[in-house]
Design a protein around this nucleic acid. Structure first.
Length: 409
DNA sequence: TTTCCACCGGAAAATGAGGTCC
DNA sequence: GGACCTCATTTTCCGGTGGAAA
């Protein structure tokens, strides 16, 4: 390790012990923190608590569908109410089987079921069983337990769009079909409503027996939320009112996203700390705002598959000296040369197109169809839609792509 | 109005690596 | 050990597509 790196690490660690202290408890600014107080969501909490109370009484409850834009507090409110439910159930010696699964993070239908099974005490193998077998083991366990069952499926849209509503159909029906019917409730949470078209109307009406829509926070509500959270996260005097107002207005511009606001104030705090300030300044918030998007983008690129990064390298080489566009077929030939250089396998043109589509969706590139008629045909033109220096930085730092950076195609 | 170009993208099948079950 | 499973990735096939040229 170089002396410069050792000196840097030593400086950072010493400053951590002796430098200005800004954060009292940084954990409260992360997304998974559930606060004791959730302002402006009292009505939603009341409604969910009322429905959940049926399970405590041993009744079946209406299923609930929760919808709202990202950062409107859906997951936090559900988790908060669940925490209270379990704590009170515990106090009164009542037991409830509760499973919470984020369907997008779980990834596949099988993993959703495996995660549900694990929550009720059944460990399923990573692979090797059919979804039907996994589901049957889950159902056997919850029916043999004879306890009220609560299933929370967060980001349920990603499951339905990819796999259809078969799993949900089984879950909304199983308790009625068995001789050992148990009281149960299903809560589905989603950021968008477009997935409804993928569902059988019977399953949809069963899931949406009750519905709650979470409206975006207003700027003044965001301000109060940030104020509450910063009082826990930072030492007194670190965050001024004007900083809170600025964070609220920047996050408010993006559909009242509380998560974005918390990310922003956390990063502003980190910048202030790294620059040895004792309080967060307005400039730190502006710096954090521009850094946040750039860091996300850089992380997104560096975690792409190798061939996607090779495509970006080819694109960078073709467009680094101009802000123009390149034909996808020409981009493919350049990609082929790099791919042959680094790996034995060159992807088919069809797969290449698929990766281009993914890069387009991520907002890293931009594709436009142009028509040059009978002679030229229909052509897809590709350009980089992020600052080229961001792309250069990520590609240069990439352990594999970096090796090719100074090599021509 | 029809033809033709160069490409797009959906669907299905193949592949290979991980695994379970009997 | 063989049949069968999931899962991510990739290939193959093939029916569009828009608009200039014929």
């Amino acid at each position: 390790m170089s002396e410069a790196i050792e000196a840097f690490i030593s400086k950072v660690f010493k400053e951590a012990l002796s430098g200005p202290r800004i954060f009292k408890n940084k954990n409260v600014l992360f997304h998974d923190y559930i606060p004791d107080n959730l302002p402006f969501r009292e009505n939603e909490i009341r409604k969910i608590a009322y429905l959940l109370s049926n399970l405590l009484k041993g009744y079946r409850s209406s299923n609930l569908f929760i919808y709202g834009k990202p950062g409107t507090g859906k997951t936090a409110v559900v988790k908060y109410t669940l925490k209270k439910l379990l704590s009170i159930a515990n106090e009164h010696g009542k037991k409830i089987n509760v499973t919470y699964v984020n369907c997008r993070l779980a990834g596949t239908e099988y993993r959703v079921v495996a995660s549900m099974a694990l929550d009720v005490g059944v460990s399923l193998p990573f692979t090797g069983l059919s979804v039907e077998e996994a589901l049957s083991r889950f159902i056997n366990k919850v029916t043999s337990d004879q306890l009220p069952l609560l299933i929370v499926l967060d980001e349920i849209d990603s499951l339905i769009i990819r796999y259809g509503d078969k799993l949900l159909y089984t879950l909304t029906r199983f308790s009625n079909d068995t001789n050992n019917a148990i009281p149960y409730m299903i809560i589905g949470i989603s950021n968008n409503l477009t997935f409804k078209e993928y569902m059988d109307p019977r399953v949809l009406s069963s899931l949406s027996e009750d519905e709650i829509v979470f409206k975006p926070y207003k700027p003044e509500e965001l301000e109060k939320i940030i104020e509450d959270r910063t009082s826990l996260a930072f030492y007194p005097g670190v965050v001024d009112k004007d900083v809170i107002k600025l964070v609220a207005s920047l996050a408010g511009a993006e559909h009242g996203d509380a998560r974005k606001a918390l990310d922003l104030i956390r990063m502003a705090g980190e910048i202030a700390e790294s620059e040895n300030y004792e309080k967060i300044l307005v400039e730190h918030v502006h710096k954090a705002y521009s850094t946040l998007d750039r860091e996300r983008l850089i992380e997104a690129i560096s975690t792409l598959p190798l061939h996607s990064r090779l495509i970006l390298l080819s694109l960078y080489k073709l467009l680094k000296n101009n802000n123009g566009t390149v034909k996808s077929s020409y981009l493919y030939t350049v990609y082929q040369r790099y791919a042959e250089n680094i790996t034995k396998g060159v992807l088919s043109y069809r797969r290449f197109l698929g990766l281009l589509s993914e890069l387009n969706v991520l907002g890293i590139i931009d594709r436009k169809l142009e028509n040059y008629g009978r002679r030229g045909g229909r052509v897809s033109l590709v350009r980089v839609s992020i600052p080229i220096e961001y792309l250069e930085r990520v590609l240069r730092e990439d352990p594999i792509i970096g090796e090719l950076f100074n090599v021509g195609p």
